[in-house]
Amino acid sequence: MSNEPYLVNLALKLADGLEKRSPESLEKHRSFILAQQQPDGGFTGREGDSDLYYTGFAVRSLGILGGVEKQEAAAISQFLRQFQLETLSTIDLLSWLYCALIVQASGGEDLLATAPENWNARILQNLERLRTTDGGYAKSEQGALGSTYHSFLVVLIYQLIGLDVPAPNDLIQFLYDRQRDDGGFVEISPMKRSGTNPTAAAVATLNILNSMDEELKGDVYDFLKQVKSTEGGFQANTRIPFADGLSTFTGLLTARDLGLSSLIDPEQILKFMTEWLEFPTGGFRGASWDEQADVEYTFYGLGVLALLATWPDS
C-alpha cells in the first residue's frame, strides 16, 4: 500500500493547481463557502443544519484555496467536538478525520489528543463489521453486498488512522470482480452498466493497493471515452445524456492518475465548467439544469479547475 494518505496527496495536487489561477477568480468561491458556515462551526448543504458530510467538503475546499484561518479552524473544532468517533457512519467518520487533520495542520487543536489509547483499534473493529463475503465493504452492517464506493472510503479511513487494510488481496479481487465488459466498474455486483464514479473509486483504490496494470488502464481508457459528453465534461454513465460536476471531476482525476492525457480536451472542459456550472457570484452547481450551488459541487468545480491548470501540455 502507498504510505502517503491519498486525500493528503490529492489536496496538495489541487492546491498547487489553484495557485496558478488568479486570486480574484477564486476569492468569490472562498466567500461562498464561508457563507455556508453555521453558528455551531459546521457547514450546511442546500438546506438544514450543519452536517459532517458538507463540512468535510467545505473544509477540503478551504484547504485547497490557501488554507483554513485559525479563527475558522477554532469554529470547525467546536463543531467536531460534538461527535463520538465510534458512532459515526463510514462517510461521516472520513469527513470527521479529514477535518480534524486540516484543523491541526492549520494551527488548531489536536482533536485526537484526548481520544482513548486504542481509538484506532476500535475503528478497525467497526469497519471490519462492514466487511462482506465478497471481499468488499458494505454501507452498513445490514448490507449483504460490498460497495465499490464504500470500500474506497474504508481504505481512505485506514490510511488516515495509520493502519493497513486487513486481507487486501480479498479487496483487490472484489474490485476486479466489479469490472464489466465496457471497461469500467460498477457499484455493486448485480449491476451491468459501469459508472464513472464507481470506476474512479475502483481505480483509486487499486492504485493505493498497487494493483493497477497496463491492461486495466486500457480498459478504463475505453470506458472513459464512452462517457465523454459533447458538453465537455463526463457523464455519470452512458445512459445519462448530460455531464455533471462530480463525474467530470472523477473522470478527469482518473485520466490524470492513469496518464490518459490524450483523452482530455482541457479547453472544452474548462468552458463547460466556467460557462455552465460556475456561478459568477461564487460556488458551482451540479449540472447545467441545476439552479443552486452547494459546497460539495464547489469542491468538485475547484478540483476540475485545479487539475486543468496543471494538465500536461495545457
Rank of each mutant, 00 (worst) to 15 (best):
G286F: 10
G218F: 06
L224N: 08
F249T: 07
K217V: 15
N210F: 13
E291R: 15
E291H: 11
A293S: 14
F242S: 03
E215H: 09
Q235A: 06
G232V: 01
E231W: 01
Q292P: 06
L260G: 02
P280W: 06
S247F: 02
G283A: 08
E275I: 00
Y221T: 11
A236K: 14
E275H: 12
F234E: 02
E275F: 02
D219W: 03
R239V: 13
I264A: 01
P280D: 07
P280M: 02
D290M: 09
V295E: 12
D290Q: 12
F279D: 13
S261T: 05
E267Q: 01
K217L: 08
L252Y: 09
L216W: 04
F279P: 04
W276S: 14
G245R: 00
T281W: 06
G286A: 14
T248M: 03
F223C: 02
G283T: 03
L263F: 08
A287N: 15
Y221C: 04
N237K: 09
G245W: 01
G283S: 03
S229R: 00
K228Y: 02
G245Q: 05
G232I: 03
V220Q: 06
F242I: 05
L263D: 04
T248D: 05
S229G: 05
G251W: 04
D294G: 15
K217I: 09
D257H: 10
L246M: 06
L270C: 01
A236R: 11
G232C: 03
Q292W: 10
S229P: 06
P266E: 05
P266Y: 04
D290R: 12
T254K: 10
M273I: 07
L209S: 12
D219F: 04
T274V: 08
E214G: 04
G245T: 15
V295K: 09
Q235Y: 01
A255N: 13
A255H: 02
L209Y: 12
A287F: 13
G245V: 08
I240M: 08
R239F: 10
F272D: 03
R285P: 06
V220F: 04
L252P: 09
G233A: 00
F242Y: 11
T254Y: 03
G245L: 05
D265M: 01
E214D: 15
N207R: 15
R239A: 14
F249I: 07
V227F: 04
S288A: 09
A236P: 06
Q292F: 12
E214M: 15
G251N: 03
G286K: 10
V295F: 12
Q235L: 04
K228D: 00
L206A: 10
L277E: 08
L253G: 13
I264F: 00
I264P: 00
S261Q: 13
Y221H: 10
K271N: 04
D294H: 07
D222V: 06
G283I: 11
T230Q: 12
R239G: 11
L216P: 02
D294W: 11
G245P: 06
V295M: 11
Q226R: 08
S288Q: 08
E214I: 14
G286P: 06
L277C: 10
D265Y: 00
W276M: 08
A236W: 04
